[in-house]
């Protein structure tokens, strides 16, 4: 993505607002990997993740008017839509019932590596650096970011005092920064 700044974010937003197909192609080619990754990380189920990804792109397309650039980057906004949609699906009743019977299938898929990575060197580099993150921090970030846990739920799951959840979050992100920057 770094060497493909063919469209600036501002221009992309403008194109999205006039519902241009070029904008869709650009959006999909550059962001589907990241959005799909985040959804898959939440749901662990390929087919369902694809459904949610479709739902997410439709949402982005139809709600672009609500995007407010003063509140953050377009990329962050889209990631949050993907994350929220995936977490909503995760929390829905239907998902929890289906989950029990399809555990084996999921693991088989997760291990075959068939589409677990893109051939983008940037992403490969990122994947490697994330391995340097201490497991306790990874768990912490994943519970909040990928599972949508609240501070209370994190405190209970990890058996740490509620008052220290935020401090730990800060330490986790500080370490994330040290390995990325």
């Amino acid at each position: 993505m770094t060497n493909n700044i063919a469209l600036f974010e501002t221009e992309l937003i403008a194109l999205l607002k006039i519902k241009d197909e070029k904008a869709f192609n650009y959006l999909y080619d550059n962001y589907s990997g990241a959005l799909c990754g985040i959804i898959l990380k939440v749901l662990n189920q390929e087919e369902l993740a694809n459904d949610v990804l479709q739902e997410v792109f439709v949402k982005i397309w139809r709600s672009i008017e609500q995007y407010d650039s003063s509140k953050g980057r377009l990329y962050t906004w889209m990631l949050n839509i993907a994350r929220n949609s995936a977490i909503d699906t995760l929390r829905s009743k239907g998902f929890q019932q289906g989950q029990k019977t399809s555990d084996i299938g999921n693991n088989a898929y997760l291990n075959d590596g068939r589409r677990s990575s893109t051939n983008n060197t940037d992403v490969l580099g990122l994947k490697k650096s994330v391995l340097n993150l201490k497991p306790e921090f990874r768990v912490l970030i994943n519970l909040a970011y990928f599972q949508g846990f609240t501070q209370e739920e994190i405190s209970q799951t990890l058996n740490i005092p509620l008052g220290t959840v935020k401090t730990r979050m800060r330490n986790a992100l500080l370490e994330l920064k040290s390995i990325f920057v």
């Binding site: 990997g33 990241a34 990754g37 694809n50 677990s116 983008n120 992403v123």
Partner: peptide, 12 residues
């Protein structure tokens, strides 16, 4: 976090 999310990229 965007970078973190990116590190989990998967091709649909």
């Amino acid at each position: 976090l965007a970078q973190y999310a990116q590190s989990h990229s998967a091709n649909p």
